[in-house]
Every structure is written in C-alpha cells, then in structure tokens.
Amino acid sequence: MKGALTMATVSFDKATRIYPGSTKPAVDSLEIEIEDGEFLVLVGPSGCGKSTSLRMLAGLEDVNAGAIRIGERDVTHLPPKDRDIAMVFQNYALYPHMSVAANMGFALKIAGVDKATIRQKVEEAAKILDLTEYLDRKPKALSGGQRQRVAMGRAIVREPQVFLMDEPLSNLDAKLRVSTRTQIASLQRRLGITTVYVTHDQVEAMTMGDRVAVLKDGLLQQVDSPRNMYDRPANLFVAGFIGSPAMNLVEVPITDGGVKFGNSVVPVNREALSAAADKGDRTVTVGVRPEHFDIVEQNGGAAKTLSKETADAPAGLAVSVNVVEELGADGYVYGTAEVGGEQKDLVVRVNGRQVPDKGAQLHVVPRPGETHVFSTSTGERLSD
C-alpha cells in the first residue's frame, strides 16, 4: 500500500534543540542515518531527549543547530504539513462522535480527496489492521487495542513517507502491549514505510526495532541492531540499560592475567587491561549477563552442586540468595555479594527445576569469553 516512490531516508545531522531559558541542550548534536523502510527505535529514560528528537523530525520543535532531512529534502524549517509524515501518539486522539471509518479517513477528507478514493483507502487499511467489521462503530465501542489500530489506520491511509510513533502502547495493559507491538512490527515490515518509534521500554525496543538508538541526557550513546547492542554495549550506561534482567556490573581489581573475581582470577583481554592502565585505572568494571554465570558451588537449596573445588576456599564470588523468581524453564536468583568491602546486588539465571532456597549461598564465575570490560573512570567499553 506504500504510495511514496521517493527514497524515505531520514537524516539527523548534528541536530540540536535548546529550550528557551535553558543552557543545556535537550538534544545535543544528534547524528543518525535511518535507511529507507527501516524501523528505528529511540529509547532511553525519562528526560533523555527521545520524544524531543521525534518532535524535531515532525516539525513540532525548533532545531537550534544542525539539520534534518527526509530523502533529499532539508525539512529543518518546514512546517509539519509539508514534511509528508504521519504521527501516532500515546493518546489515540480519535473523534468520539465519528465512526471508525470517518476517523480513519478524516485527514484525506480535509485534503479534498473524493469520497470513493477515501472509502477505498480506508477499507484497504481496515483489512490490513483487521478492523473491517468495526468501520461503522464509534470509538467508545472499541477496546484500547482496537482504538490504537484505528489511530494506526488513520496514519496508513495518508501513505506518508515516514511514520512517527510516540509511545503508542503506553495506555495498554501488559498482555495487550505484547500482542500489539508484534502487530505494529509486522505491519511496518509489510508496508515498508520508514518508521521512527519512541519508547522508554527497552524490551519493546529490542523486540521491535531493526536498529535501536539509546539516548541519555540528550546525547546519543549507541545505535545498533538489538543483537549487537546486547552483545557489545558501547558503555556502562547502555550495558546497564539494555537487557532484562539487567547486566551485572561489578568493579574489580586488575591482577596478573586478568581480574580478581571473588576467589578466582577471570582471564580478560590483554588489550582491555592495557587500555585501562593507560587511563590510570587500577580497577575495571566487569559486566556479566545473568545467563553467563557458571555455578561452581552451591550450599543449601534444592539444586545440585555443579562442581566443587578441592581447596578450602571455593572458587568464584559468593552470592547470598535473597529472592528466587521461578519462571518455569528458568529461574532468576536475586542475591548480594561482597565486592571491595561493599554489598553488591547480583542476578544469576539458574535451572528452573533446580532452584536454590532463600538464604542459600552460591559461588559463581563468569563463563569464559562472556565478560564485558569497561573503564571505571570513563565508562567506555574496553573489551572486544
């Protein structure tokens, strides 16, 4: 149904937004190239600049420096109506007195499109969105998910070059969010329309986007595919933000051959340790995903010990079990460990059928090759 034949690439060229009365940019020199037909997700905590970036692209916020392009056109200072974009908001913004069909076709009616064409485009969009049987209903007779699909349909019938979506699933319950995000991602791939999607939910970002852009305090931290971002976070912020449960981040001393991890020495890339030494760091921050720990000893609980050390002191880092989440095939241990004289929270994934009891103690070590090493002083990634 995609009607635009021109390339709908989107470029943020050092785009900056500074709100009146502020000296700190809300978005600072944002530089992203979005390919034609790509689904890019902007994600980050509240106040990071993701919605501001989207509104700059839509023409709803001024660009104080830099430029924004859609295809070959510089749209930096064009009004929203001239940008060939369609927005879907958190609020469905449907007219309550109009039918679903009238809501979906309203923008075309205002643009002077004839009734037959409007009806054809609305029916095509309704078929795609499984809304055909609801076209004569009013919004109040629809569920939240159906209303959001109507808002999507209103955007689709315009056949824009770019879809802009600002937290469109925030008003839906958890189960409906999961099903609707799958529908949106599938629909976008079917239509092939370049889409920029804003969310604060990193799980949503990782499951929907072709690429994900992580922002913090108005600055772009990393833009990459979900898999690459999970496997190679660029810095400590991305490492702690992407992943559910989050990556464990532990500051440990550098020692001969690697880093000291409890009663074990974990081998670490020599280049990473050399880079840390060049920065004057005596410690590095090691990141380990919950699924990348091996249990070397377990005292207490239902699970069997995987292996035991012959020495008096067990290998690895001692973790006291506080809470266990049993999720069927997997379980997650939420515990604490003493690192550098301080208690540190850790999460370890375990066999869901062999979970330890609360109060038990595990000794864990990172699996070889599954550690991420970051500079403690700058937060940047050091390991390959």
Rank of each mutant, 00 (worst) to 15 (best):
N322V: 09
L317G: 03
A234V: 01
A93R: 12
E35L: 11
D330Y: 10
I18M: 10
D256P: 00
V212S: 01
Y230L: 05
G331H: 06
P366N: 08
V100G: 08
T195A: 09
S143L: 11
V373S: 06
S274D: 15
D312M: 04
I295D: 07
P356R: 11
V259W: 10
R55I: 02
D357I: 03
Q298M: 15
A313F: 06
E297L: 15
K138N: 07
T283N: 13
P160C: 06
L30I: 12
L172K: 12
L176D: 03
L169P: 02
N103Q: 14
V350K: 08
I118S: 08
T310A: 06
E342S: 15
K50D: 07
L249M: 14
K109L: 13
S186V: 04
A58T: 07
Y19F: 15
A155T: 10
G359F: 07
I68D: 03
A239Q: 13
E35Q: 14
G37T: 09
Q343A: 14
I34Y: 04
F293V: 03
L317M: 15
L327G: 04
K344G: 00
V252S: 02
D384C: 05
V63F: 00
G105S: 11
E297D: 15
E297R: 15
K138F: 05
V10I: 05
S143Q: 11
E204K: 13
I68H: 01
D312I: 11
V214A: 04
K2C: 02
V333W: 13
L164M: 10
D201V: 10
A272D: 08
L219D: 03
A213K: 14
V324Y: 09
G300Y: 12
Y134F: 15
M206Q: 14
E251G: 02
R147A: 01
M229Q: 05
H363E: 07
V27P: 05
G112A: 10
Q222A: 01
V75K: 07
K140T: 01
R69C: 01
I254V: 15
Q148W: 04
T285P: 01
